[in-house]
Nucleic acid binder design. Structure first.
Lengths: 137, 137
DNA sequence: GTATCTGCAAATTCTTTGCAGACAG
DNA sequence: CTGTCTGCAAAGAATTTGCAGATAC
């Protein structure tokens, strides 16, 4: 946990138990939880934490680049402590969100920069389908 | 407008003035409006239309495949009558959403199918950056 | 004529805000 | 100490729902 303390301090953030808990929870999961899910996961260990604090903290983490916010079309935001930009695939049956890696993203990004006259800053590549577990049912 | 009537009828939907108006509005814009924006755009010509009807209609259009719903991370849904899957680029300054075309998407899709064990159904490729207009300011 | 659609108002869900007390540095 | 953070409750924004009357077919 000393490591998380350092991460926060390096970003110039005050180190509070809530921030440590939220960042630790997000770093230790691959599940891309929503604010509510983070809140519920922390309740047992941090019984006084509030949902508003979770939202405020995620907001600060977003703007300092500690987490990414995903919009996959489920009516809420999901959060990811892996800030290296990478694609996601969402199961349309169970809603789970998975990371994966593909090749050729650089050529894709170059094409985007060339074809649009935008200064491209980031991207969100989301695929949808049926996950292996849900295929069995 | 006869054309829209046919489109709706072919999907087995009842043809109502509201549905025609919503589909016509979406077909004739490149602006990817939200439900509220569609509603406001139709107010002058359809003064009795309600926002709830816009939402319900968009929901039906989604499930019948007449429109796509986009989630670009602005806290609401945006709608697109161009149902050929294509990437979007969003200006982080003014919020405008643009279509564009790139090559190599098929190889990308094949990689996704190979690397994940998902049955891939669709995708949403969203890039973010500063649009030409906003670069001038 | 009948099932579906519309418009209204109320309800729901997700997120943000204001403020007073608590805490980190 | 002082400025920032937390937790609470209330507010706000987007979307959904229930229902009675209207309309498409």
């Amino acid at each position: 946990m000393i490591k998380i303390t350092e991460v926060l301090r390096k970003k110039g953030l005050k180190v509070t138990p809530q921030r440590i808990a939220i960042y630790a929870m997000l770093s230790n999961t691959k599940s891309h939880p929503s604010a509510e899910e983070i809140y519920k996961a922390l309740m047992p260990t941090n019984p006084t934490i509030s949902l508003a604090t979770v939202y405020k903290t995620l907001d600060i983490f977003k703007t300092t680049g500690l987490v990414h916010e995903l919009s996959v079309g489920n009516g809420r935001s999901n959060y990811d402590a892996n800030v290296l930009v990478h694609p996601h695939i969402v199961c349309t049956k169970c809603g789970k969100i998975y990371d994966f890696e593909i090749q050729g993203l650089n050529s894709l990004r170059n094409q985007v920069a060339n074809q649009t006259d935008f200064i491209v800053e980031s991207e969100q590549l989301t695929f949808y389908g049926t996950c292996p577990d849900c295929q069995k049912n």
